[in-house]
Write a protein that binds this DNA or RNA. Structure first.
Lengths: 347, 347
DNA sequence: GACGACTCTGAAAACGTTTTGATATATTTT
DNA sequence: AAAATATATCAAAACGTTTTCAGAGTCGTC
């Protein structure tokens, strides 16, 4: 009855002390070989490595984090990871993080601000080294939280309120929207319907709408309020809004939606009503996500460089974490229109 | 020059000791109010809570995890989260976990076994309370790792090798495949092409293929090897395989693909070649993921209850973690065919 | 053969919690 | 009013690492 080793349940955890004993050295020495430190005799190093192998020892990174004050964890707030845009972005974020030996904690908030706040709290308690926010809506609580938070935070494909001081990675949404509408006009379109996003709480929604307005006004085309509706970036929204357009007195010649999902909703709605895309009505989307190629006709869409956006967000965040550098305030990446089959020229 | 508080960089971390001092009590007492323990005078409790608020104190869950030996972390291995099936499943897993106060660490391995092994190691080092694996390919290393791992693990929409003893949550893939092919036969189809998945390393691929074979054999239909191809569950695979079918001497009347993505690839290929679905060729998918509704004609597909699968995986895992119960070995959920517009009857 | 400069090692102090005794006071039961 | 119990508190140990410090050995140089 000698051995009362620390076994809890069935799990007998082997720790650095066990390795030290087995190898006949102190735990400091084991720690040194674990971290590839200098000043360990080759012979001793080998012995320790053997002991580690024999005992199947895996260091406890919780303990390590505690003393090092570094968890190598990045918390990510996403609005809805089941969506193609966010799941792609998330996958690029994960890739970049993993290459830098960081791991990812996901908070999928489904537009629920309470859940967002809850996750921000959890991230803080878990001592994550950094946070990436892919969501823009905010309330007082979240704003205050972010203001007092010292954990490095970057906004990815979203912009913080001016009262919150975090770098962000984006495209120039207003310019992108402006450019595509200008292009539509250049193709001879005048009846240009717009399916936007939330303009009050989401800068992305606001800016894309502004770009649309600016392009029309600049070209002397009057804005028909019947042809402007706002949804929540989902396919269903696009479908329903398109339905209302189809019931109007005049039909637009093209519909510009500020997300691919909404554009596809609109496209399907048109097709389901027996009309042809792009012969009867053209459709243009935004994001250039993978859905553009799964639909027929393939969707013309404004390309966001989401791989770059994801990777850049991580790079900046890590620089803030490791470099203590003030870093950039704002990164604006370039966009372009990718032409496929859902847009035709009227000329 | 009195105050040499522990500030590192700019961050001055406030800990339980600071709260204790401010409230004029010991840290044990603070800990008790933190955990809602008994034996704290109401008056003291309020004072402590006030101190917590004043100092904006957030407990360090790393330290807590260390002593409690509980991280409330679940590690998830996913093959590819940018895919609609996995991103949906992941989102249901996240939801269930979050409701039970667990947080999720994602490892997106993109079919890279080295990355999978790396993540399994990381999960172990991070002392996650449990692991969910949504991937089936394995090599010796992973197999050995899982065999010696004491962390509760469940396979979600995947089955472990018999040499690895973990519960799994699935549908009956063979029966599901059998049922749908039988249904096709009942609709008068005889020329039934099959786009399968990996049959050697993936039980899901094997079983769905077996179901196809069994249904044909049982109905006295001979298997035409020209009409059987295997892909990797991606849209592109479905497209390319369909292309080879279209170049054959005879055309099948229906194509059954074992993932929605491959089915959509096939469907698009058919449409791109100027044929009509389902008039010329019918298409049936597998998973009933959201893509079934984004495509025209809408895709008929074998429904997997992925919400249930995700939730059940988490439930079982948590039961293993908290209950120490042996728990179930295997959960088989029910499937059904969801009829949409891509399949027609020949009768 | 003394001095410094490396190399190697281990004891002990941290990191921020929870938990376990121990002790003291209040309340109830006998 | 003594005994038993319940309430309230704190000091100290524990969790598994890294890191600091001090000491011991080895080497080359003057």
């Amino acid at each position: 009855m000698e051995h009362h080793r620390k076994e809890e349940g069935n799990v007998l955890a082997v720790n650095i002390k066990d390795v030290a004993e087995k190898a006949g050295v102190s735990i400091s020495t084991v720690s040194r070989v674990l971290n590839n430190g200098k000043y360990v005799k080759q012979e001793v190093r080998l012995a320790v490595q053997q002991a580690i192998k024999d005992l199947n020892f895996v260091p406890n990174s919780i303990a390590r984090s505690l003393v090092r004050k570094k968890t190598n964890l990045i918390g990510v707030i996403a609005s809805d990871i089941s969506t193609s845009f966010f799941s792609s972005t998330l996958s690029y974020i994960e890739e970049a993080a993993s290459q830098n030996r960081y791991n990812i904690l996901v908070g999928n908030i489904k537009d629920n601000l309470d859940k967002e706040l809850k996750y921000l709290h959890v991230f803080k308690e878990m001592q994550v080294d950094g946070i990436i926010v892919m969501h823009e809506k905010m309330n007082k609580h979240i704003e205050r939280f972010l203001q007092t938070l010292t954990t490095p935070t970057v906004f990815c494909s979203a912009k913080p309120r001016t009262t919150v001081d975090c770098p962000s990675v984006n495209i120039d949404d207003m310019q992108a929207s402006y450019d595509t509408v200008k292009h539509l006009i250049a193709l001879g379109h005048r009846r240009i319907a717009f399916i936007g996003g939330d303009t009050k709480e989401i800068s992305t929604g606001r800016n894309r709408y502004d770009g649309y307005l600016k392009a029309l006004v600049e070209s002397g085309i009057s804005v028909n309020p019947e042809w402007v509706r706002f949804g929540n970036f989902k396919m269903k929204d696009g479908y329903e809004i398109m339905q209302s357009f189809l019931q109007g007195e005049y039909l637009p010649t093209v519909v510009f939606a500020v997300s691919d999902d909404m554009a596809v909703g609109a496209l399907n709605c048109i097709v389901d009503h027996g009309l042809k895309v792009p012969d009867d009505i053209s459709v243009v989307g935004f994001d250039d996500s993978s859905i553009t190629e799964t639909v027929r006709p393939k969707l013309t869409s404004l390309h966001q460089p989401i791989q770059q956006i994801g990777q850049m967000s991580v790079d900046i965040l890590i620089k803030m974490i490791e470099g203590n550098s003030p870093g950039v305030k704002e990164v604006v990446l370039s966009h372009k229109l990718v032409e496929r089959d859902s847009l035709r020229s009227l000329l």
